[in-house]
Amino acid sequence: MEIVTSQLANGVVVGTTIALTALGLTLIFGIMHIVNLAHGEFYALGAYFTWVAYSLLNKFWVSAAIGIVATAIIGAALLMIFYDKLKGAGPLRWALLTLGFGYVLRELMQLVFGTDFKLVAPPLEGTIPWAGGVYRIAVTVAGLLLILALALFLKKSRYGVLIRAIANNRDAAALVGVSTKTIYTWVALISAGLAGAAGAFMLPVTSAYPTMGLEIMIMAFVVVVVGGMGNIQGALIASLLAGLAQSLLTLIVEPTVATIIVLVAFMLVLVVRREGLQKLW
């Protein structure tokens, strides 16, 4: 029985990680209409940057903050560098451009860090019966707090209002002086930062390795589509579902098979309900 509850707890951790990554994806999609195929690499960058900072400073939470900020800056720089050149380009060209970024980033990380696992000991020790490691719980709480902060930021803050205005009606926002490029830069920073946060938080759990981004990105895309593209609440719930399903399935089948089952199940949802799980809640 304890193995089931600890897998449940694990599922919540995985779900939170997917949610952080997926929210970045859904933000950039909902506001800039970009399918960012390099998003998974931002997650990996977050983990690697944190690892580098940790090996220099030996303080995990500070290193995580550094990792997140560095990822946000690099991610936003990549997304905005060709923004003017790609003005008016459809989703296809953006998808291919970010795919190209993905190739380059993944290979660079492999060149710089090698293919071995970069380990970091969890900053919080000890376990809680029925629930697993203390660090995992702390990370879940931190992740959910971050998501809450994002929701509040979008709802209440100055930039939040401007971001929602652009997402809702780009022209009407521009006509009263909202600079789309500035807002997009902010959105790109937040989006990459969220992926970086997920990567930084998972570093002590999964350690860092070059293909980690690819794996999480697939899941993130699944939940973004199923949760209703551009829909934050939907992505959050779908993420937790996917994380739980995957963790529980690994009790009975191989991890790859668990991934396949989750993938196929979610795609079936999409076939049955075109708008995904949106509007079910």
């Binding site: 930039y159 205005a165 809702n168 009606n169 009407a172 009263v176």
Partner: peptide
């Protein structure tokens, strides 16, 4: 206008921008 935003938020857009 931005139809999904409230009336007040619509007015805040130029003020903030």
């Amino acid at each position: 206008i931005c139809p999904d935003l409230t009336v007040e938020e619509n007015l805040l857009v130029p003020i903030y921008a």
